[in-house]
Amino acid sequence: MSGVSPNDRPAITPVVVYGRPSCELSDGVRRYLESTETPYHWVDLDSNPEDAARLAWVTGGRVHSPVVSVGGEVLVQPTIGELDWALTRARRPVPV
């Protein structure tokens, strides 16, 4: 049997999705993460205005939904390709 099962993949650093429940882009990111069995933490910006204010500072102004943090790398409204690329980079072992 070839291939790598999801359980054999190296663990990645934390993934956090900041978004709004009514945002279709946020829903798409969450569906993608679930389909790839990538654990993530969801932060509802409507229910957590302090997180929205912090993101506005990090992103340099207005908060666009979703914002995804992959191991500290911040992606603003990422495409699935950009998200996949960041996840792939986060799974790579760090050279010693």
Rank of each mutant, 00 (worst) to 15 (best):
V58M: 11
P78E: 07
R91L: 02
P93Q: 13
D44F: 01
T36V: 15
V96N: 07
S2I: 00
Y18I: 06
V17F: 05
I80T: 11
D51C: 05
D46M: 14
P78K: 04
H41M: 10
T79M: 08
D46R: 12
R91H: 01
R91T: 00
Y32S: 15
L83K: 03
V74K: 01
E37Q: 15
S5E: 13
R31P: 09
C23P: 07
E50S: 15
I80K: 10
V94M: 08
P14D: 12
L87V: 10
V96P: 11
A52S: 11
P14C: 03
L87S: 07
A90W: 01
E37K: 15
E24S: 15
V74A: 01
P14V: 01
E50I: 07
G72R: 06
G19T: 05
S35A: 15
L25A: 15
T88F: 01
M1L: 10
T59P: 08
W42E: 14
D8C: 00
R30M: 10
A52R: 04
T13M: 11
L75H: 03
A86W: 02
M1N: 07
L87Y: 04
R31T: 11
V4R: 14
P66N: 09
V17N: 06
W85M: 12
C23R: 02
I80Y: 01
Q77D: 13
V68R: 01
G28A: 14
V94C: 07
N48G: 11
R31A: 13
S22T: 12
A52Y: 02
D44G: 01
T38D: 07
G60S: 05
S65W: 02
